[in-house]
Nucleic acid binder design. Structure first.
Lengths: 163, 163
DNA sequence: CTAAAAAACTAACGCTCGTTAGTTAATGGA
DNA sequence: TCCATTAACTAACGAGCGTTAGTTTTTTAG
């Protein structure tokens, strides 16, 4: 809190005119990012047709949210563990719902005969996990824009790297 | 340190007969796991021939190390940030070398015409990141053994999910 | 312009943490 | 058996943390 106050050019105690507690900040970041992910992905999915295209759009949307909020994404991905109950339970539940969106996209693809008969749960977690390195490694990248990186990752995940 | 001592059935101060400092434990875990990853992957790679088979073996070996040391893997993957310099720099350097192994495997596959012309750096990071969810989610799994999960993930990453 | 509300300040509390000092008990080789 | 080493113990230090109380300054509204 003292670091945060210093960054704001304020005394630490003054923070408490704006915020109830340190943990409240954590909750705010985690659940705000969750909203961000959900709204972004839902609008991306309903914008296109076909399982492959929709999964492509979903991964792209997910990556775009991370790229636009890399610091908050780090909190969302790692620091959520330090929330107290019942927020911890709520967060876990929310995350299962989010993973569920990807799982269903994969299941649709399997049913449609477009995707292999992979385990949808494992595949969903693998896809999501594969995107999570981007928040820490792509602050300043000159070789590719974050949109290009998103496209490269998405292609690897959906089509594999084998010719 | 007090929690750790309690787990050991010991007073916190007694820990210091066995360990120099808290950070020393962190270093020990991080660099021991690094050794584990390197030795495991190197022996896995030289055991088979062909780019695709070798990448397959590498990912499998990586996943096996995580499965066999899930708690330590959590530290290796997340808590290394809290090390002091110069260990932090050493760790980052080591991790780049480790990623380099995967990058080279991918480059070999591209040269051999087996893999698509993906960016080797991005692909390597994506592959490794894709495996990182396993340390937290597969404590008690009944549906698949950790070897089966490893096989499923590896197949998804190398061949993609598209038919 | 003035009163109220918001937001800054100073000071400090209470707690936890990693760690040290000094001491006592257990262990193991000569 | 004796002594040196090892490893446990008790007690406490000093620093850092999130936070609160009380006060003063700044902003806003009528």
């Amino acid at each position: 809190m003292r670091d945060l106050a210093e960054t704001l050019g304020i005394e630490a105690a003054s923070l408490y005119n704006h915020v109830g507690s340190k943990e409240e900040i954590l909750q705010e970041i985690c659940f705000r990012m969750a909203d961000e992910f959900f709204t972004s992905i839902e609008s991306a999915i309903q914008a296109v047709e076909g399982p492959s295209e929709r999964l492509h759009a979903a991964i792209g949307a997910h990556l775009r949210v991370i790229a636009a909020n890399s610091d908050a994404s780090g909190v969302f991905l790692h620091e959520w563990r330090h929330m107290r109950e019942p927020f911890l339970k709520d967060f876990r539940h929310m995350r299962r719902r989010y993973e569920g969106i990807f799982r269903e996209l994969i299941e649709e693809g399997i049913s449609a005969g477009v995707f292999k008969n992979v385990d949808p749960n494992i595949a969903a977690r693998t896809l999501l996990s594969a995107t999570n390195w981007t928040y820490e490694s792509y602050r300043p990248n000159t070789k590719f824009s974050s949109d290009q990186v998103a496209e490269l990752i998405t292609t690897i995940l959906i089509e594999g790297i084998t010719i």
